[in-house]
Design a protein around this nucleic acid. Structure first.
Lengths: 339, 339
DNA sequence: CAATTCTGCTTCATCGATTGAGCAAGCGAG
DNA sequence: CTCGCTTGCTCAATCGATGAAGCAGAATTG
């Protein structure tokens, strides 16, 4: 069965010939609207059978070219290396398919240039709609889409040009900080400012989380120590280096920390283990993100899990309803039970 | 700038009109082969500038429809919820892009029907090549591809119809088992058979790993306890239930276990914590897979990490070279340093 | 029985890019 | 001045699917 010449694919014209009918009848039958086009059930069945037999497969490029809407939906996503983005992508695909849409996804590794390139590529493939997840510059992407007449939605990080769906970062961070402060006070009997590590100071999420972090300190009557706010980026190495730096700078390290993602936590934990600080007793941690194995690391870690199902429901509601009013929908994250 | 009527996209015909030339010249210029088509540098520059100004974007559907090859490459992947598949997808995308290919990926959630559907969808989109990662029935997919004259490669799980790239599961499992046996003997002074949990008994990887597991037992002079070989599926719940079941069945639980993926480990760890067995002392674990937080769970866990970069190098070598000889390339996994 | 409606198709233009074939102008050689 | 070659383009067919418009023949209506 090995053919060196690539098998010519069956087209509707081939089927038309075999069925002794026209390509247009074949198209009508196979696209399911043969009733509308008044094709007899008999012919419909014959064509369907032949298509089956010949292993006919629609050429989507031709179909999309001709049609008004492509039914292709694009998503760009920063990384695949954590449960948060992993579940976003997995559920996005499933929900797209449920709606008869074909999802295409591109991972941009937080590279702004790649984000733009990926968005352009998706437009070239005629996506009907583009979801920019955690994009560095969502407005730039929205502009590109708008120029092409394509709808866009921001997810995870908000923009100002198209609707956005994000976590309620302030509320999540506030609650998380509160818990870590309480845990510290309970175990060490002292009210002391926490350390904040991870994320980019310039991104909306991080600044909202810092705001929640401050608010919780204020509520507890603790003054935030500004040198302990380390928005050094998300990557593990960056968090690790930030910890190294701060350890050299301050005399005593705080007994509680707010870590701005599991990715940053990876670096923080590495540093805690390697440096030998906290060898006596682990600090209380709060992680703005969830991972099942982090949950097993011990009861000194609190987590908030972003509510991916609800976030995607909101995204698809915007898409399905065709709404384009400029709003930011904030989904409360879930505070995980420790242990 | 809000236009309710979707902006008509600029085409080569629009540019041709603006430049006072023909669509064919525009196409030649923008596709980069204007030298071949003997277009003057002057006109080329004019067209390029106009395209820029007008925000022209190629319509890939039209382009692909006309061209011989689509330069689209497809991958199907079971899940996004672990680092292994996450890094496969991330690197696959990057390597595809490097080669000027457009990657499209579908997550099939280990659903055989969805695998087939996804493969068909990709063929409809005219992929030049399809990579079936961890597919339940790789040969079925290969057949579908072959009928359409499309190349296919299996990754992670081997098939018999097209080339495959997989981990050396036997060697990895052998070494992993060996280490766990040694750890048990060192700590507990007893040579006892380990428990094997996770994976599907019918899949190649699991059976090879069980073979490695057996071989290591044989080498150590330990008889495998057949009731302790639990190939119950990958999902955490399945592993958890299997553990529950076995705990009720046997008197004393083994002090060492081989866990067939981080996903299964999730369930195993949950059970260990909830059941209260092993409250005195954690069992020695070996996990066929890697995760940074699992590595932090303690020094009682050994891991082997599948060598994703080398696996994908092998995949793309097959693709780039156009080789289609039926072979299974086994890539040795990496034994992680504990701690 | 003629007029109208309905049924079951076919014809043809179209979507946007690509490419082989061809054509006119310019230029140098003879 | 003519032949042949090069340069710099244009023309038109093509990829496969879609759907508006149209056209015979059968069935129904007044």
């Amino acid at each position: 069965m090995k053919r060196s010449i690539p098998t010519k694919r069956t087209t509707i014209y081939d089927l038309a010939e075999l069925a002794g009918t026209s390509a247009s009848a074949v198209s009508a039958v196979l696209s399911g609207n043969w009733k509308k086009r008044r094709i007899s059930a008999q012919l419909a069945e014959k064509i369907t059978r032949l298509a089956e037999e010949q292993g006919y497969a629609l050429n989507m490029q031709a179909s999309v070219l001709r049609r008004e809407r492509s039914k292709i939906i694009g998503m760009i996503v920063p990384k695949y290396d954590n449960r948060y983005f992993g579940s976003i992508v997995e559920q996005f695909e499933a929900m797209a398919r449920e709606r008869g849409l074909f999802p295409i996804i591109t991972c941009t590794r937080r590279d702004p240039a790649l984000e733009i390139e990926a968005a352009r590529a998706m437009l070239s493939y005629q996506v009907d709609c583009l979801i920019a997840t955690g994009a560095t510059d969502p407005d730039r992407i929205a502009d590109i889409c708008s120029a092409a007449g394509v709808r866009a939605v921001n997810l995870d990080l908000p923009g100002s040009r198209v609707p956005s769906v994000i976590s309620d970062n302030f509320a999540g961070a506030f609650e998380l900080t509160r818990r870590v402060l309480a845990n510290c006070e309970r175990e060490f009997g002292e009210k002391a400012p926490l350390l904040f590590v991870g994320g980019r100071g310039t991104d909306h999420n991080t600044s909202e989380r810092v705001r929640g972090f401050r608010a919780a300190h204020a509520e507890a009557g603790v003054a935030v120590n500004e040198t302990l706010v380390l928005t050094c980026g998300y990557a593990p190495e960056k968090a690790e280096n930030a910890m190294k730096g701060i350890a050299e700078k301050v005399g005593t390290l705080p007994r509680g920390m707010f870590v701005n993602s599991t990715i940053s936590l990876e670096g923080v934990m590495r540093w805690i283990r390697r440096s030998g600080h906290y060898a006596d007793r682990m600090p209380h941690l709060g992680c703005f993100d969830w991972d099942p194995f982090v949950a097993m690391l011990g009861d000194h870690i609190e987590m908030v899990r972003q509510d991916v199902p609800r976030m995607l429901d909101a995204v698809f509601e915007i898409i399905d309803s065709g709404a384009s009013e400029l709003k930011v929908i904030q989904i409360p994250p879930i505070v995980e039970q420790t242990g």
